[in-house]
């Protein structure tokens, strides 16, 4: 899937439902594999336990990075600022979207269910920047830059 604009990026984000999410606070980075859902405005949503490391990091430092990868297709790297979704109606809609994402693959079962933890907290990442690496070509090196950069501000 050749990705060179926002429309294609959104299509790629919607096709997938798992991301690697990086958070940090002071000298403690943390990376986690997360179930996500995306809306048409490039807001990415995920739910985690309130007492998880990533949640604690994000409550102190709302800057996050993520990557989403598909073999022989593309890698998306992105950054943004995270906020907590507090509105009950919005939370419910997001949980519906996450449940839909989790049902895409018949055998997939979100890892968060295996972990005992506090109640859920729902985060929204408003993307500010993204970079797409084209992985479709199979040559050793590439003449033009394989990266496409997108800004969302």
């Amino acid at each position: 899937m050749k990705i060179s604009n926002k429309k294609q990026t959104l299509a790629f984000l919607k096709k997938h439902f798992i991301m690697q999410l990086a958070t940090s606070y002071k000298d403690k980075p943390a990376v986690a594999v997360m179930l996500y859902a995306v809306d048409n405005n490039f807001n990415i949503y995920f739910a985690t336990h309130k007492d998880s490391q990533k949640s604690q990091n994000l409550l102190k430092n709302p800057n996050a990075s993520l990557s989403i990868w598909e073999h022989h297709s593309a890698l998306i790297q992105a950054s943004g600022v995270v906020s907590v979704v507090k509105d009950a109606k919005e939370q419910s809609k997001i949980m519906d979207r996450l449940a839909d994402a989790a049902t895409e693959d018949e055998s997939f079962w979100p890892p968060v269910f295996r972990i005992k933890g506090d109640e859920y907290i729902i985060f929204k990442i408003s993307l500010s920047w993204a970079r797409i690496l084209d992985l479709e070509q199979d040559t050793i090196r590439q003449k033009d830059t394989p990266f496409t950069e997108l800004n969302f501000k």
Binding site: D96, L98, T103, P110, Y120
Partner: peptide, 17 residues
């Protein structure tokens, strides 16, 4: 009640499968 996502996922899986 503390696992509203689990309920939704089960609902979807029951429907789909």
């Amino acid at each position: 009640d503390s696992d509203p996502v689990l309920g939704r996922v089960c609902k979807n899986k029951f429907k789909k499968q």
